[in-house]
């Protein structure tokens, strides 16, 4: 934080968020997909199970997983595009801090995530018959945090992709192992010790734990708070690491 441009400027951060939202608004199909896709997948799941009880068991975890995956892929492609079209380089010649850009993305896509999760949760809790023991608000907060985590990891991952082909494949590479190990398919304690360890270092596991807790209980206990801090902290860490991958000078 030595040079003036390393210090964030709220006006520039907000202008960036507004610019990204304007871009999304111009692209109607993307906007519709971002807002509706998790809901459509949950509706599909509900009819695949054909039982409200089974749906209620799986849905909370998926309420985190779907937005997580979608935000990851959308963000990694958008940032990659910013790199390949030269707009990132142009911004880096301007008095803008790297974190202005990343937090601009976080705010813009965070707002989209709130909308996305609210629609999916509303449909699940009403039409699809999802029943939870805890508070709906806690559920929403966890799911939004999770979408933000997906966004932050997407930003970070896009630094390692040089083409769209690579970026698209980072989705299965970064996201699917977390989905497989997060306790959705098998309880984490029942996994082989190596896998359990792997599961322990993956942030999505803590999000799913938190969501499973909300399904059965209305207590806001220490474990829940710890899980939320882990998810939020990982998102923040990924954003800061993402800033470290942005370069003002390139070969």
């Amino acid at each position: 934080m030595r040079t003036p441009s390393a210090v964030m400027n709220p006006a520039i951060t907000m202008a960036t968020a507004q610019r990204i939202l304007t871009q999304v608004r111009h692209d109607h199909r993307t906007l519709a997909l971002m807002i509706l896709l998790p809901s459509l997948l949950l509706i599909l799941l509900r009819f695949v199970f054909n039982s409200e009880e089974m749906f209620s068991r799986a849905a909370p975890a998926l309420l985190a997983v779907f937005p997580f995956a979608i935000m990851f892929i959308v963000t990694s492609i958008t940032t990659l595009r910013e790199r390949t079209t030269g707009t990132l380089e142009r911004l880096m010649t301007m008095p803008m801090a790297k974190l202005d850009l990343l937090f601009g993305y976080a705010i813009a896509f965070g707002m989209v995530a709130v909308l996305q999760v609210s629609v999916a949760a509303t449909i699940s809790l009403t039409w699809l018959g999802l029943e939870i023991g805890g508070s709906v608000w806690t559920l929403l907060v966890i799911a939004v945090l999770d979408a933000l985590l997906g966004m932050a990891l997407g930003l970070f991952a896009s630094a390692f992709a040089t083409t769209e082909f690579q970026a698209v494949q980072f989705m299965p590479a970064f996201v699917m192992p977390q989905v497989l190990l997060c306790g959705l398919f098998a309880p984490r304690e029942s996994m082989h010790v190596v896998l359990e360890w792997a599961s322990n270092v993956m942030p999505l596991s803590y999000a799913v734990d938190a969501l499973n807790h909300v399904t059965v209980s209305s207590d806001i206990d220490g474990t829940l708070i710890r899980n939320l801090i882990i998810v939020g902290g990982c998102g923040l860490a990924a954003l800061v690491l993402g800033a470290a991958t942005l370069r003002r000078r390139t070969p």
């Binding site: 610019r19 871009q23 111009h26 079209t85 030269g86 707009t87 380089e89 142009r90």
Partner: peptide
């Protein structure tokens, strides 16, 4: 600075 390939958001 203006690059040779336009570096400006096409979707704005």
């Amino acid at each position: 600075y203006a690059t040779q390939n336009p570096a400006i958001y096409a979707d704005l």
